[in-house]
Simulated assay, not measured.
Amino acid sequence: MEEIGATVVAVYMRYLHDLLKQANMCSMVGFIDPATVSANSWTIADRSRLVAARLQKTDGEQIFMMPYNPGLVSLIGFCFYDFQ
């Protein structure tokens, strides 16, 4: 397996967004920018605040795609957030 960059992940996320838009399902899925949560961006506290702020702007019904790179291996996470 070879590492892929954040740009490739962002392009794939854009492709998924276009598919969701065609299916009229954009309101169901939210995306978090890979550059916002990557291990080499800001501090962990800053990244946590950015993710929390993004989640708080939703209605609680979305599923989020959040690529995450802890510095060792890239992971794609799906975040389910219950506001209740």
Rank of each mutant, 00 (worst) to 15 (best):
L19S: 05
R14I: 00
V37T: 15
S38F: 02
D33A: 03
V73P: 00
C79F: 11
F78Q: 09
L75P: 02
Q84M: 10
L16K: 10
F78V: 13
N69V: 04
L72E: 03
L72M: 07
G71S: 10
Q84I: 04
L72V: 08
M1Q: 10
L50G: 03
V37Q: 06
N69I: 01
F78T: 12
S27L: 04
G5Q: 05
R47P: 11
D82W: 11
M13E: 02
D82E: 12
S48G: 12
G30D: 07
A52C: 10
L16W: 09
Y15T: 02
G77Q: 10
N40M: 05
V11C: 01
R47H: 07
F83S: 10
V9D: 01
M25S: 12
D46K: 15
N40K: 08
L75Y: 11
L16S: 04
Q84T: 10
F31W: 03
V9G: 01
V37F: 04
V11E: 05
V73F: 11
I76Q: 10
Y68L: 07
E3V: 04
Y15K: 07
L72P: 00
C79M: 12
V73A: 11
N24H: 15
T7V: 08
Q56M: 14
R47F: 13
A39V: 07
D46T: 15
F80P: 00
F64I: 03
D33Q: 03
P67K: 02
K21F: 04
A53Y: 10
K21T: 04
R47E: 08
N24T: 08
C26W: 00
T36K: 12
D33N: 14
F31S: 08
P34S: 04
Y68F: 15
F83L: 09
E3Y: 08
A45T: 15
Y81V: 07
F80W: 07
Y68E: 04
S38K: 05
V51Y: 04
K57A: 14
I32C: 07
P67R: 02
N24I: 02
D46W: 11
A23P: 00
I44L: 13
E61G: 13
I44D: 14
V51S: 06
A6S: 09
K21E: 10
S74L: 15
